[in-house]
Amino acid sequence: MTAPPEAPIATVTETGIPPLQFVLPEGFHELPVSASPDQRDSAVDGFVRELFPQGDAALREAAAPYYTRVTETMAGVGLAYAGLGIFGTDGPGVAHCSLTVTAFGSDHTDPETAARGTLAALRRDPLDDVRWLDLPCGPSVTCVTLREHTIAAEGTTPVEEQPKLLTGQIQVHIPFPRAPHIAVLTLNTASLEYWTEFCNMITAVLRTVTFPAEGDA
């Protein structure tokens, strides 16, 4: 997977929650989850034009309804950021992933207490690889999950013969240092042949996370 240069800092805000900033590599395209319903169609049109810069009008018109539904779904579950990462490879095709960010309220009094509570809760699932991670912005907890999904085929194909899709997820819980909230960054990919590169990428992104004071973002 080709290593792209860094992009400008992305700022994530959600109503009632302080801002969060991080740096993403080039290759991520931000879905307009924060756009108001009356602005969403035009915002999605801009997203599709960015995603398919060489595409013609027919391609953009076909893609726009799909990405409108995706954006509406992600906005409906409270995501503060959602991006698609598309990266060139050494051969034909591309490697791809999604990155989402959300945040929720917590009753913790300090970040370490929140991180330790999260660690204990996530370790209840033996199928997940849950670890403590010290970041420049403070303590955090990572949860890595690999899942196999059965793709339902039309007709009467036996379940054991239906195609399988293996996906990987890296989820990181980061308590805010000065506020009773926890940020959750989630990277998902089905391009597992580039799993190591995606692990390195999200590690680099996490080391850029900051929680600016209100008004400094």
Rank of each mutant, 00 (worst) to 15 (best):
P111V: 08
N188S: 12
Q171H: 00
Q169F: 01
D134L: 07
T167A: 13
P163W: 07
F198Q: 05
V172C: 10
V141H: 08
T156V: 09
T189W: 03
D134A: 14
R207W: 00
L135W: 02
V141P: 04
Q169W: 00
E154P: 11
L127N: 14
H108I: 03
H96N: 15
G155E: 10
P212H: 07
A152G: 06
A95L: 01
V130F: 08
D110G: 09
T102Q: 15
L185H: 03
V184Y: 04
H96E: 14
L206I: 05
S98E: 13
D107H: 10
D107P: 06
D134Q: 15
L192V: 07
K164M: 13
G93W: 07
L192R: 07
L127I: 00
C97Y: 00
C199K: 00
T157H: 05
D129M: 10
T118C: 07
C137L: 05
P139Y: 07
F87S: 02
C143E: 14
D107V: 09
F198I: 04
E112V: 14
A204T: 09
L119T: 02
T208Y: 01
A190L: 09
G155F: 09
I202E: 02
S140G: 13
T145S: 14
E112H: 08
E197I: 03
G117W: 02
P136L: 05
V172P: 03
G88R: 13
A120F: 08
A121E: 14
P139F: 04
A153D: 07
D107M: 12
D90H: 13
W132A: 06
R123M: 09
R124Y: 00
Q169M: 10
R178Q: 12
I202V: 11
P180K: 09
R116I: 02
S98Q: 13
S98G: 15
P139M: 12
V205Y: 03
H173R: 11
E154S: 14
D128E: 10
H181G: 03
T150W: 00
G138M: 08
L187W: 06
G105L: 10
V159C: 00
T157I: 14
T189A: 08
P175N: 06
T145P: 05
P126G: 06
T118H: 07
L206W: 06
M201V: 00
L165K: 12
F198R: 03
P212D: 08
R131H: 11
R207L: 00
A213V: 09
V205A: 05
I182A: 04
A152W: 03
D134V: 04
P139R: 12
T203G: 13
K164R: 15
E193N: 11
D129T: 13
L192P: 04
V144H: 14
D128Y: 05
R124A: 14
L99M: 10
T109A: 12
K164T: 09
T167Q: 11
